[in-house]
Design a protein around this nucleic acid. Sequence first.
DNA 1: CAGTGGTCTAGACCACGCG
DNA 2: GCGTGGTCTAGACCACTGT
Lengths: 243, 243
Amino acid sequence: MASRHHGIADDLRHQITTGRIRAGERLPSETDLAAQHKVSTSTLRNALAVLEREGLVEKVHGKGNFVRRPVRKITYVGGWGTLDPWTAADAALHITVRTTAIQAHGHLTTLLRVPNDSPLTEFIGISYEGETPHSLARIYAPRDLTQTAALGDEPSGAGEAKSFAVLSPPPAEVRETVCARLPTPDEASSLRISSTAAVLAITRVAADTAGRVVEAALLTFPGDRVDAVFTTHHVINERQTQG
Amino acid sequence: MASRHHGIADDLRHQITTGRIRAGERLPSETDLAAQHKVSTSTLRNALAVLEREGLVEKVHGKGNFVRRPVRKITYVGGWGTLDPWTAADAALHITVRTTAIQAHGHLTTLLRVPNDSPLTEFIGISYEGETPHSLARIYAPRDLTQTAALGDEPSGAGEAKSFAVLSPPPAEVRETVCARLPTPDEASSLRISSTAAVLAITRVAADTAGRVVEAALLTFPGDRVDAVFTTHHVINERQTQG
DNA sequence: CAGTGGTCTAGACCACGCG
DNA sequence: GCGTGGTCTAGACCACTGT
């Protein structure tokens, strides 16, 4: 055994995965667990930290440690998925969106290729599957493009969850930059994940045929809940999907 | 200040980013730092853990805590980049590859769509920029396809570093599944990153026009060193890059 | 208020790297 | 052997949640 706390983590993990302790249930208090395993509370807390990083346990200050509901893997489909973007057409998804009028500044001007202070619409969204958050989105678009087809600010159901897409016609070019990192404290609490768990961050920039950027989306997903898939078709003797 | 150890982390981070302590240098011993900041060693170690997660500090058992060289961001280009895959055509890259003959089993049979025990060639590679590792690759291909154009097992220079591509002609379809997670202990030590830092894992499956899988690659990158970029072009009235 | 987790202490002892 | 980080202890005290 590598170390005492890993052994305890193994034990608890076994109890969780075999259903001895069920999803949503509270674990015994850290004091009790420490006593049961005859270790100090700090050692026991290290064991819990392992499980928390693995996404098996959620700690709630003042209440206890809870077994997380097993993850349902979601697939983000790249390239402005014309198919349903969450794959989870069946999952009971619901989304809350807040819309704000803002002005371009900082990175946004670079992403959208617009001058400083140019008018934008900002959409901030969180999607949930039941109680569990699965994504955070901040989407920006030039304001003159968001008059026609706009995602309403009312919560929408599963079928409409078009990857937070704001525009109806697929743009000519979509460029997605994917990055793995630890969540900011804000993201960790919004997504209810450990601040030491990995998140998948996607920056999606969509442009029309004229090269005008029509949307920039900053998407964040818990790493243990979503994979992103990108498919490229190469036509004979021709590359067509490389920028 | 959120907590004592965050304050100390802030202080040390400031000293590092302003060059007060330079890249590659060793920090004072934990005992000394604890004394300087008038905290217990455990608190000080928590502070260092913060910096380690941020990728600023590398801990080496028995030797000390070292300031990591600042990251040079590398871009992985998706879709079987026909352009240079690392973008870092200028970076002093070098790669070591180990080639083995193995037989398909478990997940590999699914990925490559071959029967159990069918003969494969396995390439295991690590690429370095100077001293710093920046990718791990395990590549599998049916053995009969690896006779002709094979990546030599000799270290190769920057220009040749075709994203560990084993085959010369671009395949008809490339499907890349991207995922953010914490590294396995093996990956953490191979990549010399904290086991609590995020990695970007890409599973790339390439098929030819007949639908035969010609290569499966399992790639792992330190999250703080690489982004992956995927570009999709939609031709008018037609989607052509969606699977 | 009682019960929970969160932070911190001041040590002990072990494991690793290097001369 | 000596200096380093790694693990662990047995507490104290603080902060949050519920009644």
